[in-house]
Amino acid sequence: MAAPFKPSSLQLSWIKRVLFLLALLPLARLIWLGMHDALTANPIEFITRSTGTWALVMLMLTLSITPLRMLTGVAWPVQLRRMLGLFMFFYALLHFSIYLWLDHWFDLMAIGKDIAEHPYVLVGFTSFVLSIPLAATSNSAMIRRLKTRWKTLHLLVYPIAILGVLHFWWLVKKDVSEPLVYVLVLAALLGVRLWYRYRPASQAASRKPLPTRMPKAG
């Protein structure tokens, strides 16, 4: 069997640049639609939904790096994970800012009431708040400084993902087919991890041990 593709450091830097631009496309699309008066009759709802959706997509991509390695042994994409995670935070931040500003005009009373009284808002808000420390500790210096605690802290990505998907599920009026897609994808991504952890010894032995889970600094 041919050796699996593994990019050189030059190739990797190009892959990162392309990925960076791709991840900005959803934002570019919104701006383009905005300039062409095409954000539907309810533009605030539209951009809120769109940024929320893309935060979820980025989160699912972030969480797919490890299962990819477990299933195929391909490990290099872990070097893209930080960028994907930060793009998740970027779209979640846009999503939250739209809610705070355009939707509620910083009416903190109304926002506090909304968060306290409506579970879908509460879980979405919690998911966003939990992602702040992860974004804040995503740089290499923090990874070095926090050592093993960094890994523990970043386990928060699992509750963030579950709450994020629940947020979507609870907000739809009736047709849950779209949030169901995220439920299934998340279940699959977490399922692979469980399977890998508790797989029979015979299968475990036939595979190479995983490379270190810590992302490389730099």
């Binding site: 905005g34 009759a41 533009p43 709802e45 951009i47 355009l102 109304a110 409506h118 879908y120 907000l171």
Partner: peptide, 17 residues
């Protein structure tokens, strides 16, 4: 309120962003 969201305010369509 609707059990899941507020009914105290509304967004008038056509007002823009």
């Amino acid at each position: 309120d609707h059990p899941r969201w507020t009914q105290s305010t509304e967004r008038r369509i056509g007002g823009g962003l």
